[in-house]
Nucleic acid binder design. Structure first.
Lengths: 145, 145
DNA sequence: CTTGAAACGTCGCCGCG
DNA sequence: CGCGGCGACGTTTCAAG
């Protein structure tokens, strides 16, 4: 992982559909060399994959929320992940410091759909209760990093 | 926007580097037809772009946090966005219902870096105070949708 | 890094509803 | 007239040298 790899990562971060020639130009490499580097980055997990950025509003995903979750007992992060993964509306989840045990980000089609999703989260065996706030508007959503 | 477009979106969501032949196969179309559809989805903003999913831990981004921000006065979402965009460590930001005005997701290299980033957020003219929690571990991070 | 063959992207043209 | 298939040409990919 050096400056060349960083240039490659930044190039595919900006446009995942770049050709290897473009990636190579950004990194000062030939196309085959760029491909070998990128293949290696994918193989060792530094690059986890390639996706599209979709305007979720445009196909109906109009309602989102953040929920603080409080657990019962002290489940491991792995147990919590297992239970939260079962709810497809959960797009992000993190264990956190502070009063709550985790923060989960939910996306749904509308309010009834969101309510059902939160309901399913609360049904998880390791979860005691949740405290939710509705997202009013998305301000920023930058690709990481 | 029909079932064919949805199939295309899902295909590039799973792998943004899919060939047009693969996208076409997923949607029951020829490669040129798939390209025309995808080009149209990009042109009208339904697909905002294509990125890589990077393992942020792997290149040093080891510290993240969520901050609830409380504003002074009542800034518009646009003003809030402008001020938060000035801080590159802010990867997500949303206005929300509830006591806080917004939730912002920050990523930093380490604790001192995070502290400086939060400092910069608090310096924004429209922001009164913030309340932060540190992320202990990332459980889920699904591509949307 | 360069090469060459196979695969892919891209464009124009035609046919269909 | 929008939309999809087909064919052709230049470009890119990719494995071998």
């Amino acid at each position: 992982m050096d400056a060349i790899d960083e240039a490659i990562v930044q190039c595919v971060l900006r446009d995942a559909r770049s050709t290897y020639a473009e990636i190579g130009r950004a990194a000062g490499l030939s196309a085959p060399a760029a491909k070998r580097r990128l293949d290696r980055l994918v193989a060792d997990g530094t690059v986890r994959g390639f996706t599209a950025l979709v305007d979720t509003q445009a196909l109906g995903w109009r309602t989102e929320a953040f929920a603080e979750v409080y657990c019962k007992g002290n489940p491991t992060p792995a147990e919590l992940r297992r239970d939260l993964e079962a709810v497809p509306e959960v797009v992000e989840a993190y264990t956190v410091s502070g009063a709550a045990d985790a923060i989960v980000h939910l996306m749904a089609l509308d309010i009834p759909h969101l309510e059902r999703a939160i309901q399913r989260v609360r049904e998880a065996r390791v979860i005691e209760r949740t405290e939710s706030v509705i997202v009013l508007s998305g301000l920023i959503n930058r690709p990481r990093v």
